[in-house]
Amino acid sequence: MLKIENLHVYFGGIHALKGINFDVPEGKIITLIGANGAGKSTTLRTICSLVKARNGKIKLKDEEITNIAPELIVKRGVALIPEGRKIFPNLTVRENLEIGAFIRSDREGITKDREWVCELFPRLKERLWQKGGTLSGGEQQMLAVARGLMSRPKLLMLDEPSLGLAPLLVKEIFEIIQRIHEEGITVLLVEQNAFAALKIADYAYVLETGRVVLQGTGQELLGNDQVKKAYLGE
């Protein structure tokens, strides 16, 4: 579904991505893991065109989407749930969901999907009329995921959805990701919580200072000594 070829990104003089290659096949959960500053967020942001690629190609279903306008990416069925949630604090929960569906005009479909995400996240349902800014951290993360789903993406990219959440909520978020995946949505998951991510991933890539240094199935990497030492704290 998504193919990244030799992707290079610079911030001024900083060479943040140094020729990254990876694949996200349709219907799979793929994860990118790596330490802070490895370039995970930059990778997702470049796919969404929020950051411009200097070199390399991003292909979605064999069509090149490198550096097109960010607002066109979501129209092609790719949604990013950004690091730090980035929900709109001044909009109500309902309006946050509505803006998630901004590219759509099928009123009925939107209403149906709102019911669907409310079913996935019952806590949002009770808070539809509350301002996004008044939600707790966990609820904001759920809202961010729900908002992303409202565009009906084919590929959902999540940037550290478990960051800063209590262990119970982390578990819940990972369960939700699996449920979303079972609905037929392809998932590209970025995590520092390598253990949880590898457990649900079909295939994983390890990023280190702008390069892919290791790859394999989730199971393989969970058993890999290097990964164990660097990311699983064993």
């Binding site: 607002e71 979501v74 709109f88 604090p89 909009l91 803006i99 901004f102 908002r147």
Partner: peptide, 24 residues
């Protein structure tokens, strides 16, 4: 209206609004 929603969203976060498909 939808345009009003877009106006209110870009007033707090232009980048995330673009992720939603808003033409800034």
């Amino acid at each position: 209206t939808k345009t009003g929603l877009a106006m209110r969203s870009i007033s707090v976060d232009i980048e995330t609004s673009r992720l939603m498909g808003v033409n800034v």
